[in-house]
């Protein structure tokens, strides 16, 4: 009989595109990739344009502001605890695109009030990233997107 405990170590990589993106956050930069053929900008970045089936052509820096595209208030935490104060998150459209549902954007927390989510007045509001003082190259380097 052979008894063994497997040493199941893992090393999960953010990959070529998202490693650059996360390291960019350390310097308060939101970086995306661009496809020169269809002009689509990818945030979070991709190394491959999924519309043109070709590699993307380079990096662009985007402003750390945008408009709220969707928002949701959750009374359930990450660890499934009930929350008194809701966590508000949503998608932020980083800059204008002619196509409503295809845009460079981020899914992040939004610093706003529950009432503004309930009456949906937050949708379309202009927001700006609130950066942490100490940044490590993580999506958590941004505290939230706050209304301006």
């Amino acid at each position: 009989m052979i008894r063994y405990v497997p040493k199941a170590k893992y090393s999960y990589s953010a990959g070529q595109a998202q490693s650059v993106f996360l390291n960019g956050l350390k310097e308060k930069k939101i970086l995306g990739t661009v496809c020169n053929k269809c002009k689509k900008v990818y945030v979070p970045p991709k190394m491959y344009c999924e519309e043109c089936f070709k590699p993307t052509d380079g990096w662009v820096e985007l402003k750390d502001e945008g408009i709220v595209h969707t928002a949701i208030a959750s009374f359930v935490s990450w660890t499934r605890d009930r929350l008194e104060e809701p966590i508000i998150s949503g998608t932020i459209k980083l800059y204008g695109s002619e196509r409503d549902y295809v845009f460079p954007g981020m899914f992040h927390r939004i610093c706003t009030t529950y009432d503004k989510v309930r009456d949906m007045s937050i949708i379309g509001a202009k927001v700006k990233a609130v950066w942490n003082e100490k940044r490590v190259g993580s999506i958590e380097d941004i505290q939230c997107f706050k209304e301006v």
Binding site: M1, I2, R3, V5, K7, A8, A14, S19, V20, L22
Partner: peptide, 18 residues
């Protein structure tokens, strides 16, 4: 140049009969 997340997965011991 890449970012990695490293860790250990929880796995049970197994017994294998030869």
């Amino acid at each position: 140049d890449l970012i990695f997340w490293k860790g250990n997965m929880e796995v049970e011991a197994y017994e294998y009969d030869e």
